[in-house]
Amino acid sequence: MLWKPILLALLAPTIHALLRFSCSQLVIERLDPLVNPGISQSPHLHQIIGGNAFNVSMDPAISPADQATCTTCTFSEDTSNYWTAVLFFRARNGTFKRVPIKGNSGFESSSGGMTVYYTPTIASTAAKVTAFKKGFRMIVGNPSYRTEAEAKQFRQLTYTCLQTITTRTGETLDFPKKPCPVGVMVNVRFPTCWDGVNLDSPDHMSHVAYPQSGTFETNGPCPATHPVKVPQLFYEVIWDTTKFNDKALWPEDGSQPFVWSFGDKTGYGNHGDYVFGWKGDALQKAMDSNCNINCPQLKTQSIATGNKCAQKQKVPENIDGWLTELPGGMMVQ
């Protein structure tokens, strides 16, 4: 895997070990086995990466690692599934166009997807984290949120208006309000404290928590209710908004034109989902080894091989071309 050394300082100045890897697109469709298990089409569209065990329902007693035959991730022992909503451009005439995804720095040949991070330790402490367990799953963010005050409940769900592919400053809680030269990067950082007991919870969030003060990166302590430190799981998704940078295409009032597939035009409803699916103790081994980007303790595959792992939509639906409404008929609000 390629890596540009300057990014380490830009991305995580206080961290001395992390996994950073590419996972290309598995499928884009309206499925959500966490929020809408068993429902053949969830209310809004998602983009999914990882193992090909992703399905309408995913029994927590059965690990994706036991069912997946391939993964889109460059660490081939990772058959987890990671997903977010999908970004759309809304034209002046009210029609919608799906915004494509492009590869991150060092992964330019990837066919979209995400960059995934697992951070095992903090530079200021020798304390290590406990890897997620079989059956573990979680969600961060809330698609119903539309205000800054609501969005602040999740400390690290942000947007970066990319001036270059290595821009890592100027994060905002809402959509950028001006054209971004290289695209819009969506940052999804999950809580890093676990109650140590429950692999999931009814809202898929209560079993995890943010540090009691500060953030994982600043070594904030975990609350007593969630004493177990787990890895900092972090997604970066780069949406190629550049083809829509002509302000003549934007609303006449100058407001930003992008909207999430669940109808959010503010950006405050940013959220992400995760189902753990690493094989055996591979993730714990990587965390204990303090792997720094590359990890000899893990098996890898080429981006080209990962790109070959794909699913067809289980319920075929038109998500390309100019659409008169968002998939599922989601209203913009």
Rank of each mutant, 00 (worst) to 15 (best):
S206A: 07
H207K: 03
H207T: 04
V208D: 09
V208C: 08
A209D: 06
Y210R: 12
Y210V: 06
Y210G: 07
Y210A: 11
P211I: 08
Q212M: 08
Q212R: 11
S213Y: 11
S213A: 13
S213E: 12
G214H: 08
F216P: 11
F216W: 15
E217R: 15
T218C: 14
N219A: 06
N219G: 05
N219Q: 09
G220P: 01
G220W: 08
P221S: 12
P221A: 15
P221N: 12
C222Q: 10
P223F: 07
P223D: 08
A224M: 07
A224F: 06
A224Q: 11
T225I: 05
T225W: 08
P227F: 03
P227E: 10
V228T: 15
V228L: 07
V228Y: 09
K229A: 12
K229R: 15
V230Q: 13
Q232M: 15
Q232N: 15
F234A: 14
Y235V: 09
I238C: 02
I238P: 02
W239L: 15
T242I: 09
F244G: 10
N245T: 13
D246F: 01
D246G: 01
K247M: 15
L249C: 07
L249T: 08
W250H: 05
P251T: 11
E252V: 12
D253P: 01
D253N: 02
G254K: 04
S255Y: 02
S255R: 01
Q256S: 08
Q256G: 06
V259M: 01
W260Q: 03
F262T: 14
F262L: 08
F262E: 10
G263E: 03
D264K: 04
D264Q: 05
K265C: 11
K265Q: 09
G267C: 03
Y268F: 10
Y268L: 06
Y268H: 04
G269L: 02
H271L: 11
H271Q: 09
H271W: 12
H271N: 10
G272L: 04
G272I: 04
D273P: 08
Y274A: 02
Y274D: 02
Y274L: 02
V275E: 14
F276Y: 05
F276S: 06
G277C: 02
G277H: 01
G277V: 01
W278E: 10
W278Q: 06
D281P: 08
D281K: 01
